[in-house]
Amino acid sequence: MKTNTLSLPAATFGRLPRLLAPLLLCWLLLAVPARAADPAPQIKPCLACHSVERICRNVDKDGEFWTKTVKRMIANGAHVGPAQVPGLVALLANPDHAKVREALNCPSPDSLEARVAAVPTAVILAHPVLMILTLLLSLWVAWQGVNRARFSLLKQKVTFNWKGHTRYGLVVMGLWVAGAVGGSIVTDMLHGIPDAYELHEGVASVMLALIAFGGASGLYMDRKKAKRKMLPILHGVANMLLMLLALGQLVTGIVIVARILSS
């Protein structure tokens, strides 16, 4: 006895993949979120000559800046074709800058790392380098002051360069004042730096008071020469204390710069 079974023509099974393919494609488009193109390949030509930090430093600039920059880099030999320019500029000048920051792992705009990246390293290093040179010059000035004390107080026969002591002593005082002002400017540019700066700033304030006394007393003794005992001693003690504080500033300054540059 023959049993009836439900069967579909073979041709129907042959058409099934073509019928289901559009439905499957629609499902994939709806179910899988669209992914933005990875911007790293577009930025790769920039990284051939420039560091990531430099691009992050300028990532907030507008389209006009990036258009001029890209064209200038192409003129300098950047491997960017004319067809790539609009896309590259649009990416770099994206108002939210999220794509570029994410692709390059740029720090948050409010982070210390971002603030440091916005200030040229040469500007950050200018202050400590100037203060080190000033400290070295102050050693020579101090040595001339010691010779004066040996001559006037101990009656020893030594050579004392009065004019050099006065001239370069004023230079040292002026550079220390300039260093204090420059350090404050850099700090403002960084919108605050590590907590070691509080001690550094406090010592700088004490130094400014001693600089005022040392400079004024030195000029007074240079303009009105006379035999004195107490004022030269006070002048020398204040200036020696200044040098000791400057040495301490060198230590805290190195700590601050190391923290800034390692952030």
Rank of each mutant, 00 (worst) to 15 (best):
L210F: 06
F151L: 14
A98I: 04
L30V: 15
L175Y: 05
V89C: 00
I233G: 00
Y197E: 05
G174C: 09
R228Y: 09
L130G: 05
G164E: 05
G248T: 14
T67H: 07
H235C: 03
L247V: 15
V59D: 07
L136V: 12
A93P: 00
C106W: 01
A48T: 09
H97S: 13
G174E: 02
V181S: 06
P82A: 05
P9V: 08
A142Y: 07
V251Q: 07
A204M: 11
G236M: 10
C56G: 09
P9Q: 13
A209E: 03
A178V: 08
N76Y: 15
L125P: 08
V181R: 04
L28R: 06
S217W: 10
R54T: 11
L16V: 06
G248L: 15
M207C: 09
I124C: 01
L130S: 11
A78R: 05
G145P: 01
R57D: 08
K157M: 01
H235M: 07
A83S: 15
T12E: 11
G87E: 04
L137E: 11
P120H: 03
W162C: 10
L137S: 13
M173V: 11
G253W: 02
A126V: 03
L139D: 07
P22G: 14
A90I: 06
L170H: 11
L139F: 10
L133Y: 12
R15S: 14
G145Q: 04
V32C: 13
M1L: 12
A36N: 00
S205T: 11
Q156G: 07
P232A: 08
V237K: 00
M131A: 06
I124Q: 03
E53M: 00
M173D: 15
L261R: 06
P9F: 06
K68D: 08
L8R: 03
A98V: 07
R57G: 11
M131C: 05
G214V: 09
V100P: 08
T12I: 09
F65V: 07
E201S: 14
Q249N: 08
G14Q: 10
D60R: 04
F151G: 06
K68T: 11
V251C: 03
A196F: 03
E113K: 03
M131L: 02
P41F: 04
V251M: 05
T5K: 12
N147W: 02
S108Q: 09
K225S: 08
H200K: 00
A216P: 00
G179A: 01
A178I: 10
L154N: 06
L28K: 06
T69M: 13
I124F: 02
A90E: 13
T5A: 14
A204S: 15
K68F: 12
P107Q: 02
L244Y: 01
G183N: 01
A83M: 10
A149C: 12
A10S: 13
H97E: 08
E201H: 14
M131G: 10
P41V: 04
K163V: 10
D222T: 14
I233D: 00
T159I: 12
A246K: 09
